[in-house]
C-alpha cells in the first residue's frame, strides 16, 4: 500500500458536448426494379432543408432534423425533437449523379438509378 497521492489534480478535459437530440432510425421501404432502387422513409416533421442525403463509397446516409414548435404547457408529449439517421450500403453501381429525392407528407422518396452497365440486358439469341 502506498501513501502516494497525486499532487497534481487530474486535468478534466472538456469532453465533447453530448448529444441532446435522440437519434431515431426512420422506418423505410425499399423497392427495386430494373432501372432503379427506390427508398421511402418516414420522416414526419422534417423540413426539406433539414434533410441530407449522402452517398459515398457505397454508403448511403440519410439524416433529417425534426423540430417541433413548442408553445404553452405540455399536457402530454409522445414525441419531441429528434434526429433521423440511417445508413445503408448501396451497390457501387448506383449512378450517384442522377439520384433524385422528393419529400411529401413527411415521407422521403429517394430514387437511386442504376448505372447503365448494371442494368439487366436482354441477350438476343441468334440462330446459327
Amino acid at each position: 500500500m502506498s501513501e502516494k497521492k497525486d499532487l497534481v489534480t487530474r486535468e478534466e478535459t472538456m469532453p465533447e458536448r453530448s448529444r441532446e437530440l435522440s437519434i431515431v432510425a426512420p422506418l423505410v421501404d425499399i423497392y427495386e426494379n430494373d432501372e432503379e432502387i427506390l427508398l421511402h422513409a418516414d420522416m414526419p416533421g422534417v423540413k426539406k432543408e433539414e434533410i441530407t442525403v449522402n452517398i459515398d463509397n457505397g454508403r448511403l446516409e440519410i439524416t433529417g432534423l425534426k423540430k417541433i414548435n413548442k408553445e404553452g404547457v405540455a399536457a402530454w408529449e409522445e414525441f419531441g425533437d429528434a434526429e433521423y439517421r440511417r445508413v445503408f450500403s448501396v451497390p457501387q453501381t448506383i449512378d450517384a449523379g442522377k439520384v433524385k429525392a422528393e419529400l411529401s407528407d413527411g415521407v422521403l422518396k429517394l430514387h437511386l438509378p442504376k448505372a447503365a452497365a448494371a442494368r439487366p440486358r436482354k441477350i438476343e439469341i441468334r440462330t446459327a
Binding site: H40, D42, P44, I68, G72, V73, A75, W76, D105, G106
Partner: peptide
C-alpha cells in the same frame, strides 16, 4: 399516431405525427 398536447391558455393544441397520410 403519436401526439403531443399543449395548453396555450386561450386554446389547446394537439400535434400528431401522421407521415404518408393524405
Amino acid at each position: 399516431p403519436k401526439t403531443n398536447m399543449y395548453d396555450l391558455g386561450e386554446k389547446l393544441q394537439i400535434v400528431a405525427e401522421v407521415p404518408g397520410v393524405a
